[in-house]
Every structure is written in structure tokens, then in C-alpha cells.
Design a protein around this nucleic acid. Structure first.
Lengths: 138, 138
DNA sequence: GACTTGACTTAGACAATGTCCATTGTAGGA
DNA sequence: TCCTACAATGGACATTGTCTAAGTCAAGTC
């Protein structure tokens, strides 16, 4: 994650204790925290950090392209630090667990021109839904 | 839409003025209204209808499989009456316009076993994002 | 047609998530 | 060290959705 901090500093991002903590909380694979979860973990390290700052910082990281917003459920947005490796998501319908997945195939190529309605398409998002091993056996 | 009303009645769905209005509002192709939009249109025909009833009715239609819930943006859920023909969605990033699309290809088959993490997958949701012709020229 | 009953509807309180703003604080350059 | 622009704070507000208690009504029965 020091990578991320370095990159951000190099891009002129003003470094503060709050921003550092938010970036650190987002480190790792298969991390998909909600803003509130990020806030909760950030508070453990920096008790005074406010909700608004967490929202602001997450929004900035998304704008900078360092973090992706993911909406796998219909509740809170989740934040995925794995922004530099394109991937899709697999979600457990019971417990909400999320895994990053890398399907073969080309969904964009699968959409014929007649089905594009004149849109200029820039992105495809694929969400697989199912039940995870834990929930199946439970 | 009388089809839908007939089907519902046949399934023992108690018919009320409110439910009829909600079902009628949802009629058509490329219809993807939010609960609030459904409520607004329902109020035009039945001024006393309450928000709670619209939410309840939409929830029931989803449970019955007559309407799909769609989350194309991160704001409100949208309701898609075209539940009997499988399809995906194409969304304009600027104005939010939504079209139903039918890609070729098999996204489920494109996910290798090694990428399934033991999940039992039941559904795939694909959302194409881009800019619609209106917004491009504007 | 009137009665009955359980399902439906209502209004409003409440909850969860997110945004905005005025004020206060501070990182980093001069 | 001092300045200044940018960041953080906290609390009000907005949006979307859920819940509940009380009233209302659709549809079956007589």
C-alpha cells in the first residue's frame, strides 16, 4: 500500500493523517468495504476521523482511479482497491461475501451493433450471483 | 398489461385499485422506473395512494417474478416489467437512460471453475455503460 | 344486498446511506 | 516561522427505503 501512498503523493495529493489511514484500511485483495466499514476501521486508528472525511477521501480515490466503486448489493456502495487489474465480481446471495473473478470471453464484443442503440460504450460490469460454500453447507 | 392483471388474479392476488394502478404504470418496453417515479405516476391516477403501498406492491411483484429489480445506478432501485424475457442493460452515464439489450455469448460459461471459489452460481447480471446518442451530440 | 374476515392501505415515524456547508485546523511551500 | 490554500470536522439535511398501528375494503358466504 506504500505504493499507493507514493503514487498519490507523486500526483500532488496532499497527505494527511486521515487520508493515510483511509488508504491503509483499503489495502489487500478481495477487499470490498462499505464507506461505513472503512470509517469504523479508520476510527480504530484515528478516533477523531469524521464520516464526511471518509466519504470525501473515498470519493477522491475513486476520481483518481485508484479505487473502484462497486454496487453488488442494493445497499451501500463498496470500495475496491484493486483498480489496476480489471475484474468482475462474484457475490453470495446469502451472506454477501464478494470475490474478484476474471472471466474469459469478451462481453463487449458480445453486444451486436444493432443492440447498441447508438451508444458509445466504454465499460462493462458483470456480477455473478450465487451461494458460497459456507452458506451452502450451512 | 391486462395479461399481467389476469395472471395475478389467477394466482390469487387480491385486486385493489392501488395494485391495478401500479401494475398499469409499469406497462411497456424499456420501462425502468424508480419506486418514487412509480409513485408519482400512480398518484396522477389515484391521488391517495401512499408511498408504502407502492413499495409493498413493487416488492410483491418482484417476489412473484413479474417484475425485476434493477440497480443500474447507485441511487434508487428500478423496476423492469420485462421479467419474462432475459436481458441485460445498457446505461447512459450522463443522462441515465436505460435500454434493454440481448448480448450473444454466455457469461456464465466464461467463468472457469477455478474462478468460482466453490460458489453455486445461479445468475449473471451484465451492465454496459456508455454515452447515448443524445448526450454525445449535446 | 348485507355481513364477515383477513388481507390491504395509510400516514407518519424511523433507519440507513450519503451530501453539503460553515467553521476550524494544518501540510507544505516561501 | 509564517501563510495560505486545501483538508477535516460535525451537524444539518436529503434521499431512499422499512416498519407499525389503526383504519379500510375485496371477495366469499349467506
Amino acid at each position: 500500500m506504500s505504493d499507493l501512498l507514493e503514487r498519490l503523493r507523486g500526483r500532488g495529493w496532499r497527505m494527511t493523517a486521515q487520508r493515510r489511514v483511509v488508504a491503509e484500511v483499503l489495502d489487500g485483495d478481495h477487499v470490498h468495504l462499505t464507506a461505513d466499514e472503512v470509517h469504523a476501521r479508520a476510527v480504530e486508528r484515528l478516533p477523531e476521523i469524521s464520516r464526511a472525511t471518509v466519504y470525501n477521501t473515498l470519493g477522491e480515490l475513486v476520481t483518481l482511479g485508484e479505487v473502484l466503486e462497486v454496487s453488488t448489493d442494493r445497499r451501500a456502495k463498496r470500495y475496491d482497491p484493486n483498480a489496476h487489474r480489471p475484474h468482475h465480481h462474484l457475490v453470495c446471495a446469502r451472506c454477501g461475501a464478494i470475490r474478484d473473478v476474471h472471466p474469459t470471453g469478451d462481453p463487449l464484443g458480445d453486444l451486436p451493433a444493432t443492440e447498441r442503440f447508438g451508444f458509445t460504450i466504454s465499460d462493462v460490469e458483470v456480477t455473478y450471483r450465487g451461494v458460497c460454500p459456507n452458506c451452502v453447507s450451512a
